[in-house]
């Protein structure tokens, strides 16, 4: 146990080292989540639009 708490203490710099890694993790993970969410929402909207246009024009190709 001693070695784990020693590791977490970071030689007295825990208050600086862990927030630094934390900030990086939050930003990097946040971009993954927001990117995937936006991509899925747009692809769903596009598929719905294409489906509706297809139905309206009776299968005729639109722009």
């Amino acid at each position: 146990m001693g070695s784990i708490s020693e590791f977490l203490a970071m030689g007295g710099y825990a208050a600086y080292v862990w927030p630094a890694f934390g900030v990086a993790a939050v930003v990097l993970v946040g971009f993954v989540i927001s990117t995937l969410r936006t991509l899925r929402a747009r692809e769903r909207a596009l598929a719905a639009r294409e489906g509706a246009d297809h139905a309206e024009t009776g299968g005729e190709r639109t722009a």
Binding site: T35, L36, L39, A45, L46, D53, A63
Partner: peptide, 26 residues
């Protein structure tokens, strides 16, 4: 990490442009 996310985000931008083109055509 950046290249992977860039691929996904550009894919999202292409979808958004296509959607916009369809809406304008409509």
């Amino acid at each position: 990490y950046f290249i992977a996310l860039l691929f996904l985000r550009v894919r999202g931008e292409i979808a958004a442009r296509k959607l916009r083109a369809l809406q304008l055509a409509r």
